[in-house]
């Protein structure tokens, strides 16, 4: 059985959907002959040709803007931003146009597009390559923000994102691009968007996370399980809109919750989850909700990046404090 990495699962999903739907086009910087700087589009140009897979000039605002134009005219564009740190020139197009197209035209036009971007730290990259700013997009009505955390979910969720009739930010945690392999059958089966995934079931505490932090979170969960605790781990996967039902159901069972994210703490997806728990799950709680997050600092250069990214030790300490509260 083919066991592939998360980034290979992205390629596999793109290839599958390009084969299935002629309207799907893939473009960005260095994505054609070079196959993308992370090789996420490797082999697509050879297979689908210039009309379906093409390099753009080096302008992220351009990438975002033409995506809106193509999508409004019936294509299903999948745009790659080389790094999320360079997406901000395109922010105007995504926020002012992609996210609003359907609403402002009362459905006459729409924007069935996917904006892909590798994101997050932990790969010893230079400045501007390591931030986790999913919350900027999660704030915007009309967008979906989807973050896969395993090869199988990358495949299934990307297929869902391309097939979704509305714009999806598909943020790929590059730290775990090749962290594990998984058997991912190329069967074209999408996974549901707007749905959290329960990765471990347990009764004592709920750990809520997404993206690359899945790695440390599962490691801690496994340690605690070995120590006799029963830990539930939820991969939020779609951070906008949030599947609070799954999280609240879990908390009703466990009464304790730790949210783990790589992004800065303030006004983050974790803040939103915690606020929702306060609104709707307060009386299920046996302990205050804890957040283990990146700090409210500029993402440090890589010498300190693992001091910034929540460590297993920080997660474990938060879990123990919550359990012992």
């Amino acid at each position: 059985m083919p066991e592939i990495t998360l980034v290979e699962a992205v390629t596999q999903a793109l290839a599958y959907e390009m084969g299935a739907d002629n309207n799907v086009v893939v473009f960005g910087e260095d994505i054609a002959l070079n196959g993308g700087v992370f090789r996420a589009t490797d082999g697509l140009h050879a297979k689908f040709g210039d009309d379906r897979v093409f390099d753009t000039p080096l302008a992220e605002n351009l990438i975002a803007g033409i995506t809106v134009g193509m999508a409004a005219q019936g294509l299903k564009p999948v745009a790659e931003f080389q790094f999320m740190g360079f997406i901000y020139p395109g922010f105007n197009q995504i926020v002012c146009h992609a996210a609003r197209m359907r609403n402002r035209t009362r459905g006459r036009l729409s924007c069935p597009a996917v904006f892909r971007a590798p994101y997050g730290g932990g790969i010893r990259a230079p400045e501007h390559h390591s931030e986790s700013t999913e919350a900027l997009f999660a704030h915007i009505p009309g967008l979906r923000v989807v973050i896969p955390s395993s090869p199988a979910r990358a495949y299934g969720l990307l297929l869902a994102a391309i097939r979704d009739p509305d714009p999806v930010m598909f943020l790929e945690p590059k730290r775990i691009y090749r962290h594990v392999k998984q058997d991912v059958p190329d069967n074209g089966e999408a996974l549901p968007l707007d749905t959290a995934f329960v990765l471990r079931e347990g009764n004592d505490i709920t750990l809520v996370t997404w993206g690359a932090m899945i790695k440390e979170t599962l490691a801690v969960a496994d340690q605690l399980t070995n120590e006799g605790l029963s830990v539930e781990v939820i991969d939020v996967a779609t951070v906008k809109p949030l599947d609070m039902d799954t999280i609240l159901q879990s908390i009703a069972k466990t009464g304790r919750c730790v949210i783990i994210q790589e992004a800065v703490k303030t006004c983050s997806v974790g803040s939103e989850i915690a606020a929702n728990i306060a609104e709707k799950g307060l009386f299920d709680l046996h302990a205050p909700v804890k957040r283990v997050t990146g700090f409210d600092t500029t993402m440090p250069y890589f010498k300190l990046e693992y001091d910034y990214i929540p460590s297993e030790a920080r997660i474990k300490q938060a879990v123990m404090e919550t359990l012992e509260y």
Binding site: E3, S150, R178
Partner: peptide
């Protein structure tokens, strides 16, 4: 990658999608 160092492993994840 063009920058940094992406951790690579042959570890196989046994988890349903």
């Amino acid at each position: 990658t063009v920058v940094g160092n992406i951790e690579v492993s042959n570890e196989v994840l046994r988890e349903s999608a």
